[in-house]
């Protein structure tokens, strides 16, 4: 059974709507608010909520049109229920519930993180448990052991900044602007990742991350280099910083692959769009003969197709949310 699902994602600063049939995205549209928030230096919850309510209706029409699907052809509706910004979540969740009720369709609320975990299925038919997935963005960084769909063991997570947050902070120090991840990726072009040996923080627990110390060492390094007058090229420093973050993420993810014996490794979140990280993923997987299932960058960053594929999965397993379901901004994978 391949249900056709209209899906919504509004947990942060992207208003996203998609139509998914089974594991195939028939459409995947979004209205990004990056420019709106860039002038504030970060995502402003009230600004995000305002933008969601202004664009969700027209995006829904666009998603249905692009998919060539009439509301009467839908089998169900899904929306992100959490985690995220409460005011932002409520817009997509309320709109979705109302549409589902109006068409008398089953509705299911989806954990945003589970959406990221299932996103690889949109492009890799054989992405299935048991698998290891790295979830890393501005709001979250964790290594998840997907034992089965719905059975997730969080092996490790960040003990301070999320990886995307670390990119934002470091890009700021470098004068690269917001958001930091794409800026650092671009600035690293042609740079030597081994130019500067920034430290890799390795907390006691093998799968946990820590990124706050990196900022201190980068600031110290830049100050010293400026004083002595031999500041290396921007690309070299950017590539070295990027390498320090990527190295930790990749090594720990593949340590989890080794320990669990998983044969496939996936990922989601904006940081997984980083070119260096994707390259290193492929290298490490090759060494081990395991399969990499990293979806295209547009399916790594927040999108509604991932909510749709998770929605189709759970609706075909008979899971339906109550009309009284509320959003859960602090929802965590268990």
């Amino acid at each position: 059974m391949n249900p056709t699902v209209l899906a919504f994602e509004t947990s942060c600063d992207e208003t996203a709507v998609a139509v998914v049939r089974g594991t195939e995205a028939l459409s995947n549209v979004l209205s990004s608010q990056v420019d709106l928030h860039a002038r504030f230096g970060g995502v402003v919850p009230e600004v995000a909520a305002r933008a969601h309510v202004e664009s969700i209706r027209s995006l829904t029409h666009q998603a249905l049109n692009e998919a060539g699907v009439h509301p009467a052809d839908l089998d169900g509706i899904a929306a992100t229920v959490g985690p995220g910004l409460v005011g932002a979540l409520l817009v997509g969740h309320s709109f979705a519930k109302a549409t589902a009720w109006a068409r008398q369709l089953p509705f299911v609320g989806i954990d945003h993180m589970e959406g990221h975990l299932m996103a690889p299925r949109l492009q890799f038919d054989d992405f299935a448990p048991p698998a290891i997935a790295l979830l890393a963005s501005g709001g979250h960084s964790q290594i998840v052991h997907v034992r089965d769909w719905g059975d997730y063991e969080v092996l490790g997570h960040t003990i301070d900044d999320a990886a995307g947050e670390a990119f934002d902070k470091l890009a700021r120090v470098m004068g690269l602007g917001f958001p930091g991840g794409p800026a650092m990726d671009a600035a690293s072009d042609g740079g030597d990742p081994a130019a500067v040996a920034f430290p890799r923080a390795l907390p006691d627990r093998p799968f946990h991350f820590s990124f706050s110390g990196l900022k201190t060492s980068v600031v110290t390094y830049i100050n010293k280099a400026q004083k002595s007058g031999d500041l290396p090229p921007l690309a070299d420093v950017a590539a070295s910083i990027q390498e320090a973050i990527v190295d930790v993420l990749v090594n720990k993810t593949f340590k989890a692959v080794d320990e669990t014996g998983a044969r496939v490794v996936g990922g989601g979140g904006g940081v997984l769009a980083n070119r260096r990280l994707r390259h290193r993923f492929a290298e490490e997987a090759d060494k081990r003969g395991v399969q990499v299932a990293l979806p295209d960058p547009v399916l790594c960053t927040d999108n509604a197709a991932m909510i749709g594929v998770a929605g189709a999965h759970w609706l075909s397993h008979g899971r339906i949310s109550d009309w009284a379901e509320n959003v859960d901004p602090g929802l965590a994978l268990t």
């Binding site: 309510v53 005011g87 409520l90 709109f95 109302a98 109006a102």
Partner: peptide, 15 residues
């Protein structure tokens, strides 16, 4: 207000 408007928009968009 946004919960109400999103709900209204969702209902209205359905038909």
């Amino acid at each position: 207000i946004r919960v109400g408007l999103a709900t209204a928009q969702g209902l209205a968009a359905a038909f």
